[in-house]
Amino acid sequence: MEELSFSDLPRIFFNMDVMEGQWSLLLSGMWVTLEIAVISIVLSTVLGLFVALIRIGEDKLLNVLLIAYLEFCRATPIVVALIVVYFGLPFLNVTFSPFASAVIVIVFVHAAYIGEAFRSGILAINNTQTEAARSLGMTKFQTLRYVIIPQAFKLVLPTLANQWTGIIKDTAICTILAITELLKAAQIISTWKANPTPLVMSTVMYLIILLPLTLTTMKLEKRRGSKN
């Protein structure tokens, strides 16, 4: 192997000649990543809210099932869940497209965490709020919908934003399937051009997507901290 010097770094990691004609593949990969992320964020947030509502309910059996589900998600690597769904379930004649498998697994795992976040937010709302709403004749559902959840949502927004960041990062597990999302696209180009620059560029793109979100989260957390 030839001797490498410090001055070789730009040629290896920031070689724009390598990227020539390849940006469209990388950008389409970024688009796929965003698609998976947005769909997963919306679905896991909605599902997480349902999980939280069942968790605060009194049904013991459902609660035990949900705790088992939560512990399963906490104690298994997400990539294992993905392999089980995509490569395992077909043995039961249940087959999902790579895209669907990715979304199902991400939503399944993150809804558990988001559910816990919502649950702690709902429990943090003072009981007088519920009593005030119920004493006005509002139903349980109306109380949750118009009084408790809006307040809980505000309270857990920083935690939610953190989870959403995690979801976007977890889209990278799709590289093990036949989905050309951002990381996979970068790998393809990198292998073909025998140069790591595309991988570095994909990192930059992840940063472009995620930095606004993480910075906003930090701001929200600061604001929440100063309020208390």
Partner: peptide, 29 residues
């Protein structure tokens, strides 16, 4: 829920909904 519509209650700690304005608090129910 129907019975409570006709029985108002005022609490020691007010119990106003903090995410709504005064008039929204009054209009909600």
């Amino acid at each position: 829920d129907t019975v409570r519509r006709d029985m108002g209650m005022v609490f020691q700690n007010f119990g106003l909904f903090p995410h709504l304005t005064a008039i929204e608090n009054i209009m909600l129910a």
